[in-house]
Structure formats: structure tokens, C-alpha cells
Simulated assay, not measured.
Amino acid sequence: MYTRAEITKTKTDFWTTFGQYMKPVPSAEGLKVNWQNYKTHVPQVFFRMKAERDFASIGIEINFKDLEMQELVFEQFQTFKKLLEGALGEEWQWSLHSTDDYGKVTSKIQKTLPNVNVMEQEDWSEIISFLKPRIIALDEFWSNVRPAFEGFL
């Protein structure tokens, strides 16, 4: 239905729009931040946002190759579960050691918005309205708990 070039251009346009929309929003610490490429400053711990043809999602990905280390970091997040859910105002899905689209074992804590399509520009406001408060809440949560994860460097 869509060519690869159309998908690439539309996704690039969406993320550019999202970035422009988020640009004036400072981090919880009052700093300028690149929201669409959020840096946790902890290796192998990422905040990921996706906008696809059938869903949008936001989450925390833990990608240590050492599965015991991945589990240890996941358990560390579990100790902060109430704080995370308090910042987000909702529960997220927790999955330890799932396999991604490339066969890589990863652990995730995420929320998904089904039935939206990044290829349909009329869905963009719904996707942005889903992602914006959650990435801001993740940043607020992270500014409070990041020191507990810096030992995993």
C-alpha cells in the first residue's frame, strides 16, 4: 500500500512535528532535551517511542546482552514500580526477557495505544497526545531514580 520511501518520509515528518511540538518543553531539571531521542545516560537502558501503522507505544527498554544483568536492572525498576506508576498515573505492561523483531532478548516496561496509524496525518494529534505526557512523566521519574541505576554503568 505504501512504498518504503513514503513510509520513511511520513515517519520522518511525524517525528519532526513531534520534536517541534516538544521543543519548548524543558526536562524535569529545567534543561533542554531532545525528547524523541531521550538519553538516559545509563548504557543499555533506553526510553523508546514508536509510531507505526497500527499502534503507537512508549516504554523503557533494557538491552543488556548479559541476561542476568538485564534481569537485575529490570528488578531494580520493579523496586520503583509504585513511583513510576505514580508519575505516569497508570499501570504499564512489564515483560522480562521477551524477544524483539530481530530475535534479540530485551526486557520492556511499556504502554501501547492501539488502532492509530502514523501514515494517517489525522491520527498524529492522538499519537502526540499519547506520547507527550508519558515521556514528560518518564523524565520526571528518571530525574528522581537515575542515581540508583548509575551503578550499572
Rank of each mutant, 00 (worst) to 15 (best):
E90H: 12
F46Q: 09
G30F: 03
G59Y: 00
T12N: 15
W142T: 02
K65F: 03
S98D: 15
K104W: 11
F74Q: 02
T8Y: 13
W124R: 03
V42A: 06
L67I: 13
H41C: 06
K111F: 06
R4K: 08
A148T: 00
E52Q: 13
D100I: 10
A51L: 08
Q76H: 02
D101G: 09
F14K: 06
P114H: 10
T16I: 07
L96R: 07
S57V: 01
R134S: 02
L72V: 10
F64S: 13
L113A: 09
V73A: 06
T99W: 08
A148R: 14
L83D: 08
Q36N: 09
Q93R: 10
L67H: 14
L31S: 13
S107V: 09
Q78Y: 04
K104I: 11
W124F: 01
K39G: 06
Q36V: 04
L72H: 10
A5E: 10
E90N: 11
M1S: 12
W15K: 12
V25T: 15
E61Q: 07
V118G: 08
E68C: 02
F152T: 07
I127C: 09
L113G: 07
E126Y: 00
G89F: 00
S98M: 14
D101F: 10
S57P: 12
S95I: 15
F77K: 04
L83S: 08
L153E: 15
L83G: 03
E68P: 00
V116R: 00
F80E: 11
E91K: 15
F74H: 00
S95L: 06
E90A: 03
F130C: 08
Q20K: 15
G151L: 09
S57I: 00
E68R: 01
E90F: 04
T3P: 07
E29M: 14
W94Y: 13
Y21R: 05
A87M: 10
K9W: 06
E150L: 13
V105N: 05
Q44L: 12
F18G: 01
P133V: 14
I58K: 05
L113T: 15
R53D: 15
K23T: 15
F46E: 14
D13W: 01
S107P: 13
P133R: 13
E6W: 05
Y2P: 08
W142V: 01
K81C: 09
Q110L: 06
A137V: 07
N34H: 13
R53M: 13
D101M: 13
I58M: 04
F47V: 04
N115K: 05
S27V: 07
P43C: 03
V42F: 01
S125R: 13
D66T: 09
A148P: 04
F46C: 03
F149G: 04
A137W: 03
E122R: 07
K132W: 00
Q110N: 14
P114M: 10
E91A: 14
S98V: 11
L67M: 15
I135F: 12
I128C: 04
V145L: 05
R4Q: 12
F77M: 06
V73I: 04
K65I: 11
E29D: 15
E91N: 14
R4E: 07
R4V: 06
K11Q: 11
I136H: 00
F46V: 08
A87C: 15
T17M: 00
I109H: 06
R134V: 04
T40F: 10
E126L: 02
K108N: 09
E90D: 12
